[in-house]
Design a protein around this nucleic acid. Structure first.
Length: 283
DNA sequence: CTAGGATCCTGTCAGC
DNA sequence: TGCTGACAGGATCCTA
């Protein structure tokens, strides 16, 4: 799914479109995709905690949205170009609703579709004052921009037997990274993903934080994964990852740093992309 | 307590 | 063509 940069891209894009707009009707096409009571109220603000998006309403309620692996938010304004972001696939440009549409929110100025192929994502209605007490939100660690090097290093020591990739994917240790940015961060840091977290030095911990910020900032600046990148002007399909990715999904291609062949391995149950020359295997 | 694997679900792709 | 298993930008649950 969308990782932190994609959710931030959605937050920025949707903010311009739906703040001050009233949700007049909610259609739930898949029960498990919507938790709690549907709301009829006006959007006041959009916030983000790691990969979770919060839509605050003027009736004391909020909609918490987690896209997980395949979630997307697609806003079809009346008389304007569509804004689509999240997991990039044909739904961005498809006629909606379609069979992957799970929830439809009708606003004054357009329709917001929540599409989710695998149904792992959800929209959850809760009291605005309870957002920060939500079990998931509450245990999130700080994002790379605010985490302290000391805090991060100590957590690595606590999970010393786990491979570093598994550790940085854990949102209660450092928040925001997913499979793509974890691979990119470790590549930039020249650290093999199988390295035991306990073997990571203070200097390396600092480097990981710095590179996580750098790659995610670059992604946010490039506009994340939206319809604009997905559908090129000539009608062909683009890949927004090309704008900043160095190893993810590039197995068989050359490492941009040393020219060696990038390989794909399996770490912590996830497909993992490395340069075997730049990222030395731990002993 | 941590670590690792299975699990939720739909769809696509490689291999036979 | 049809079948099978592997895998997928996430997080939780279960077991050892």
């Amino acid at each position: 799914m969308p990782e932190l940069p994609e959710v931030e891209t959605i937050r920025r894009g949707l903010s311009k479109l739906i703040v001050h707009q009233k949700i007049s009707k909610t259609t739930i096409l898949c029960e498990k995709s919507f938790v709690g009571e549907s709301q009829t109220a006006t959007v006041t603000n959009l916030r983000r905690y790691g990969k979770a998006l919060i839509i605050d309403l003027d009736n004391g309620k909020s909609l918490m949205i987690h896209l997980r692996m395949t979630g997307q938010l697609i806003f079809d304004p009346t008389n304007r170009e569509r804004f689509a972001a999240g997991h990039p696939n044909e739904n961005f440009v498809d006629t909606l609703p379609n069979r992957q549409t799970r929830v439809i929110l009708e606003l004054e100025n357009g329709i917001l579709y929540f599409n989710d192929q695998r149904k792992f994502g959800f929209i959850k209605a809760l009291d605005t004052k309870e957002v920060e007490n939500d079990a998931f939100i509450k245990k999130l660690a700080p994002e790379p921009w605010s985490i302290s090097e000391e805090d991060f290093y100590n957590k690595l020591k606590k999970h010393s037997k786990s491979p570093i990739k598994a550790t940085i994917l854990d949102q209660t240790i450092i928040c925001g990274l997913g499979n793509i940015y974890a691979d990119e961060t470790l590549f930039m840091s020249k650290i093999h993903p199988m390295t035991k977290s306990g073997e990571i030095t203070r200097e390396q911990a600092k480097t990981i934080i710095k590179n996580a910020k750098e790659v995610m900032e670059k992604s946010i600046e490039s506009g994340g994964s939206t319809m604009r990148d997905y559908k090129k002007a000539d009608g062909t399909r683009g890949n927004y990852l090309d704008k900043f990715v160095q190893v993810f999904g590039r197995e068989g291609k050359k490492c941009p740093v040393c020219g060696a062949e990038i390989i794909k391995i399996r770490v912590a149950g996830r497909g993992t992309h490395i340069c075997p020359t730049c990222q030395k295997e731990p002993k």
